[in-house]
Nucleic acid binder design. Sequence first.
DNA 1: CATGGTCGTTGTTGTAAATCAATGTCGCCA
DNA 2: TGGCGACATTGATTTACAACAACGACCATG
Lengths: 217, 217
Amino acid sequence: MLSVCGSLEDEAFVGLQKLNHPVNFPARAVLFNQETPVRHVFTVVHGVVRLYKLLPDGRRQIVGFALPGDFLGLALADGYGFCADAVTAVTVCRFSRDHFGDYADQHPQMLRRLHDMATHELALAQQQMVLLGRRDAEEKLASFLLGLQKRWARISGKSSVTIDLPMGRQDIADFLGLTIETVSRTLNRMARDKLIVIVPDGVRVMDAARLEAIASA
Amino acid sequence: MLSVCGSLEDEAFVGLQKLNHPVNFPARAVLFNQETPVRHVFTVVHGVVRLYKLLPDGRRQIVGFALPGDFLGLALADGYGFCADAVTAVTVCRFSRDHFGDYADQHPQMLRRLHDMATHELALAQQQMVLLGRRDAEEKLASFLLGLQKRWARISGKSSVTIDLPMGRQDIADFLGLTIETVSRTLNRMARDKLIVIVPDGVRVMDAARLEAIASA
DNA sequence: CATGGTCGTTGTTGTAAATCAATGTCGCCA
DNA sequence: TGGCGACATTGATTTACAACAACGACCATG
């Protein structure tokens, strides 16, 4: 289990502990949105947060799900904003954006670490572009499931064939650039094909090899 | 016009000048690819570079076009690779990845600047996710054209209603998650609708207001 | 000025996914 | 216990875009 402030237990970050400010949000609570300037950065301690952008007509693209240990606030500077809200009940560590920025500027190793996180996020974003632009519904779902499985494994330290899906079908659809119906149909077809079994709030991987073949097709 | 090493004329970077190594590539030349580990980072001086990822079956997603002044090599660390090749004849400034990394680690202001660039790229990547996941062909093209127009304006210092398109239709298609036919048809429909005029290697914006309405729909 | 190559356009047909429309399931609370 | 509301599934139909196919424009090269 992650202690008070998740990914900040690093020696680079001990100085930040005193700026630390734990906060709880119930499911569906808004952490911040596209319009209002963001006054804080966050580290997720538990729960799941969805990050998304809205078009004026209401179309939504989820740009990521933040799981425990993830840091929120990298791309917040640019004025390009996105929204974040709690998928499940969530605990975060909150830092004032200004204090955090000052701290980073005075601690090159921290800056370095932030930069590494940013480039990692960028690499993930590029993977997501491939997925959104060039893959069909089944490939999208297979990648999504396996990607989440790896992330949960990394968080819990042990891998499992059961993948927890705390987010609803609509969230998955908005992450993968599909509709809720297509997500539902594709998932159920995968179950019919014995790739997975659908369980409450998750799926169980039955044929990892075939699933991976589809995901990296 | 950008002098020897484009975006490196900053006081933060004078120490790098001696590591500077200008290189020319003809159109279509490969700067680096997904497989081979990347030994250099680059700054584009002139010409246009396409950055893309390939799926095993040959599908391609262009994740960005690098124009003069742009830096290449942010997301290169992660092992997740992408390919880069010259759309037009290209001049770049090349730096050894190791030397560049060492330099950055010893110059916090440089690290800071790299980090800002990375978060900016991340914000753009997220915009592109919205475009790929949730916009139709016409919206994609409109955004693409206006985005390029702004970038050219920023580079040349003056805005123009004529947008240079040095890349071919296939490149545009692979950037927007469309086929070449859809790009062609959509552009020609926009021309028929008097939004733009198609000229050799570019388009001319005739109805900026309507185009922007479509782009930010 | 023929010839081949690349690239773009245009027409036709096909299809994956969107859309429209019920219906089903589960948990919560009156 | 029954009924309401959120969410998921399933079916029918439509549609935007892909795929296939043919043709035309441009230019480089012998």
